[in-house]
Design a protein around this nucleic acid. Sequence first.
DNA 1: TGTATATACCTTGTATTGTTAGGTATAAGA
DNA 2: TCTTATACCTAACAATACAAGGTATATACA
Lengths: 108, 108
Amino acid sequence: MITKEMTSAVSNLLVLSVLKKGPGYGYMIQREIKHQSEGLMDWTEGMLYPVLHRLEKQDMVEARWGVAENGRKRKYYYIKEEGREYLATGIDAWYAVSDVLIGMNEDE
Amino acid sequence: MITKEMTSAVSNLLVLSVLKKGPGYGYMIQREIKHQSEGLMDWTEGMLYPVLHRLEKQDMVEARWGVAENGRKRKYYYIKEEGREYLATGIDAWYAVSDVLIGMNEDE
DNA sequence: TGTATATACCTTGTATTGTTAGGTATAAGA
DNA sequence: TCTTATACCTAACAATACAAGGTATATACA
C-alpha cells in the first residue's frame, strides 16, 4: 500500500539514485526502479516522464538524444552536480522524517 | 530540507501517531508534532486542519466538540480502528519505500 | 507476410493537496 | 488597554500523481 504521496516523496530521489550509477533513459529507469523495488514501484509513463522533464528543468540532470545499439533513438539522462547534492540532502531529509515517525511509534 | 512531498507522505501517519496515544485537538497535535520532530516539522494551520477533516471524512478519526478546563471550546479527535489499521500499514509501506531508497544507495 | 509484443517517447485532463493568506474568537499576561 | 497565545476555520493558487490517450520502431512468431 504505497500511497501516491510516498511515491511523490521519493520519485526524484529514486530517479537520481539510478542515474548516479550511470546514464539512463526513461524506459530503462522505469524498469530499474521496478526491479530494485521487487515490483513494489511500477510507475506509469505519465508519472515517469514528467519527473524526468522536471529534473531537467531544475538542472539536476542533463538530457541528450542518443542512438541505441539497435538504431533506436533514445533520450539519455546524465546526473549533474546539483542532482548529486539534491540526492544527498534528500536522503538525509528522508532519514530525519523516518526518525520522527519511528520515534512517535516505538514507545507503546 | 523536508520537501512538501515528504510532508504530504507522512502527515496522516504523524497525526494518527499522536492520536494513538490518546485524544487530541488541532492546536495540541500541531505542537506535539513540532515537539517530537524537534522543530523540524512545524505545520501551518492551513495544513493541519484540512488533514484532520480529511481523516474524519475517511472515518479514521472521530471528532467531538468538548470544553477545556479553562472553559475554552475545543474539537477533540479520537482515533478509530480504521485509523489504527491505516497507521500500521502506512508505517510498513514507509519502511518498504525506505528499504528501496537505501538499497539503491548503499552500494557504491 | 502479417501481427502481436516490447521498446521508447510524449501530452492532456482530473483530482488531490501543501502553501499562502486571509478570517473569527477567547484567555492570559504585561 | 494591548499584545500574545490559544483555537478554530476557509479560499485561492500552484504543484503533481494518475489515467488515458497518442506516435513510432524493433523483434518474435505464426
